[in-house]
Amino acid sequence: MPNFIWENLFRNSNSEQTLRQKLKSNFLFQDLSLSQLTLLERIVNVRSYRPGENIFRQGDIGVGMYLISEGIVNIYVEEIVPETGEPKMAHVTQLKEGDFFGDLALVQENGRRSATAIAHKDVVLIGFFKSDLMEIAGRNPTAGVKILLRLGEVLGERLRETTAKITELKKKGS
């Protein structure tokens, strides 16, 4: 069953696009003007991953988020099996082109990754990290504020979803 925390609620349709278009179609960057997108395009990091390659692991110190440019990424959470006491990787969700993940690391100080992300096929990711956010906020504060407001919205929406789910579970339990 896909995990609601990792579901991308802000997915847009994504076909053959340039880097700038891909950034523009992402929820976090959709308010940016052309010049702000040009600056962002120069700041982000494009990375390629092989099938089965770790993007990050649960417990690592997170430094930023990734936007999927091409390919599929699997998200796993390490769980302890109660019967054996052994750790086991549980598949949580599968993220596709246009999805983004790891965004909590942008606002956390030395926050740990809550899951492991592994490339399912050949994957191209656009990395946007805390240092990039600081750079964009320093060089173009308006763009920084626009990104942070959207980021706040994403995190707020996830919190609302979590609260609703917890309430639902509590109701089921009682």
């Binding site: 990091n45 990375r47 991953y49 770790n54 990050f56 690592d60 430094v63 930023g64 990290f129 240092s131």
Partner: peptide, 9 residues
Amino acid sequence: NNFFELALS
């Protein structure tokens, strides 16, 4: 990739 985030930080 395994050292990328570390290098950036």
